[in-house]
């Protein structure tokens, strides 16, 4: 046990006091969580920007109290680029999370990731089917904003429950309220609700996860 022929650098074998040892544990834990964990702020940030600016720009294509009026094409490009960026960032980050790790946590993560894909796939199928029956344009708009937000809200509730994260669960509740509120607001008010309440909630969450120190297992 006392063998010093480990080839370790001498500074690695210098004795530690109890305080130094605890400090090393703290440092190393933060380092591991930073490098191994999912940086939640990088998930929520692009989505918050897409909601705030994307839905905000769509709102501005309608005549409103706001003096600025955007052409539809501009809003479509802003919205398209921001949402595609958010999707790509989420998928890439999600796939990279826990690289080199196998076991129950990877299975949970993969199942959760697929829940988004499967849920949105089914939601679009339902909405397209219902729309085909012939709906007024505003009804189609509200069908999409309501169903998408309810799905997003429920998936955040699920994520909060899976990772025992009350803040994420709270975001889920907020997105459910936002979804219902957007439908009640009608067109084009729904876009203002999605932009400010939805985007605001997501950006607040991104800010929270940026400031919160890495979580420690106890």
């Amino acid at each position: 046990m006392a063998g010093d022929d480990t080839g370790a650098r001498p500074d690695e074998d210098s004795p530690l006091s109890a305080g130094e040892s605890l400090a090393l544990i703290e440092r190393q834990q933060q380092e591991v969580h930073r490098r191994l964990g999912v940086n939640a702020a990088l998930f929520y940030g692009p989505w918050g920007a897409a909601y705030l600016l994307g839905f905000g720009s769509v709102f501005l294509t309608y005549p409103s109290a706001v003096p600025l009026r955007l052409p539809g094409g501009v809003a479509a490009v802003i919205t398209g680029v921001l949402f595609v960026t958010a999707i790509v960032v989420s998928v890439v980050r999600g796939a990279r999370a826990g690289r080199g790790v196998r076991g129950p946590s990877r299975v949970v993560g993969a199942m959760y990731g697929w829940s988004w894909t499967l849920g949105f796939g089914a939601m679009y199928a339902v909405n397209i089917g219902v729309t085909r029956l012939g709906l007024p344009a505003d009804a189609v708009t509200l069908l999409y904003s309501g169903s998408a937000l309810v799905l997003v809200g429920v998936l955040y509730l699920t994520g909060g429950a899976l990772w025992q994260d009350r803040f994420q669960y709270g975001l889920g509740v907020w997105m459910l309220v936002t979804g219902a509120g957007s439908v009640l607001a009608g067109v084009p008010g729904n876009f203002a609700v999605l932009s400010l309440a939805g985007g605001g909630g997501l950006l607040l969450t991104a800010g929270y996860f940026t400031l919160r120190p890495p979580r420690h297992r106890r």
Binding site: A8, D11, E12, D13, S14, L16, S21, L24, I25, Q28, Q29, E31, V32, H33, R35, L36, R99, G100, V101, R102, G103, P104, S105, R106, R217
Partner: peptide, 29 residues
């Protein structure tokens, strides 16, 4: 209670129970 092994233990303890990490990924961490 040795600096290098303590760091290894911290990294492995940060994994969820039942999870395993590849040698190269641990080395990189």
């Amino acid at each position: 209670h040795a600096q290098a092994r303590l760091r290894v233990m911290v990294a492995l303890a940060a994994l969820s129970t039942g999870d395993q990490i590849t040698f190269p990924r641990l080395q990189q961490l």
